[in-house]
Design a protein around this nucleic acid. Structure first.
Lengths: 203, 203
DNA sequence: TAATTGAATACTTTAATAATATGTTCAATT
DNA sequence: AATTGAACATATTATTAAAGTATTCAATTA
């Protein structure tokens, strides 16, 4: 059964086209052509155009999330993981134009305030990565005790806010520097005081 | 010359109507009637409808900002000021339905990512309030050294993000709790370690 | 002179309709 | 199981007329 492989090829084609033309101006005929089939056959894989779109976005978000999950296995220090996650996530977005374009065309995907979050399942898993890092940090005594659910959601929302600022709307360098400052504050806010040997405290 | 008083009456009327019906569905005839004059006369006070709208929003934002500036004079501790600013700002928005409605009808006012920020001057002054608090904190040695411009902008953006989540889109209680957690982290991230007498550290 | 009016004008939105394009179904085919 | 292509249903665009609203301005008022 090669249905799944074919389906992913369709998503790949749709990702490119939806990103380039947006939902409305992308026709099923275009998608079918790009995927090497006729439009009728697309209905063998998805319910309708809306379903194709949502599955395509889901496909792209999942790849992103998987890439993030992979990128932090090696490290051990929760604080390093936290910072690495921020950097890698940004790097991924900067390298994937299709995804960026989709986010430009449909700002509701990562809406600041999702009315009904169509991709809550994928986002939930992304938050879980953060959540896991926080739990490790708290257990190891590196992080302050906290409500990890709420903090994960807070960090995630700030995160998305700035990823979009920097890579989707191109507010560029300044936003990036603002984000870095925010990251510093978050890191200090999460961590308990560093051992006894402080880095420069007077007396 | 009572031109300025009359002008403010027009803004007050326009604020109510733009909030209730939005920009497009509010007619100058309505605004004129609410302000007790005919529509032709409105052009004595503003250039055109667009100008009326922008000045009206500016008027509302300025009032908000002034109220914030007033509310923090009494306190002395920069940290308390910072937290107080957050609370008062939220309180103000919760009490001013007109402003909330305007923000609902026109999300670009506090756009997460202002393409061209039409109200940058007002927002700039709001950021300055934050900036001043940060400078005091750093000078008194309560806060870590930092790039105050960047940090002020970071805090402002997170601030707006959550004010909108809670009071504009009614994401209600949960967002409020998330914001409180974020506030805790920000406070810890800004402040240097508390003296020698820590509140519960072992040994 | 500053402030206001009301009617004339210019501009935009709405409504209705036809023409076109695109989404969807499905029996037949590979 | 996977794919096609034609038939059908639905949505988008284009056109135009009607209605509504923004804008201007010479005349009027305080």
């Amino acid at each position: 059964m090669k249905k799944n492989r074919k389906r992913q090829e369709i998503f790949q084609a749709a990702l490119w086209l939806f990103g380039r033309f947006g939902f409305k101006k992308t026709s099923l005929e275009q998608v079918a052509a790009e995927a090497g089939m006729t439009k009728g056959n697309i209905y063998f894989y998805v319910r309708d155009k809306q379903d194709l779109y949502e599955q395509t976005v889901r496909f792209a978000l999942s790849q992103w999330r998987d890439s993030m999950a992979d990128s932090i296995i090696q490290d051990t220090d929760p604080l390093e993981k936290f910072v690495l996650l921020a950097r890698r996530s940004a790097e991924y977005l900067s390298q994937h134009e299709d995804l960026r374009n989709i986010l430009i065309n449909d700002p509701t995907i990562f809406s600041v305030t999702p009315r009904e979050d169509r991709f809550s399942d994928v986002n939930e898993e992304a938050k879980n990565i953060l959540h896991t890092i926080l739990r490790e940090g708290v257990q190891e005594g590196r992080f302050h005790p906290m409500d990890m659910d709420l903090v994960a959601e807070f960090l995630f929302s700030v995160y998305i806010l700035y990823l979009i600022k920097v890579y989707v709307k191109s507010e560029g360098l300044r936003s990036l520097r603002i984000f870095e400052e925010g990251l510093k504050i978050a890191v200090r806010g999460l961590c308990r005081e560093v051992e006894k040997s402080s880095d420069g405290s007077p007396a």
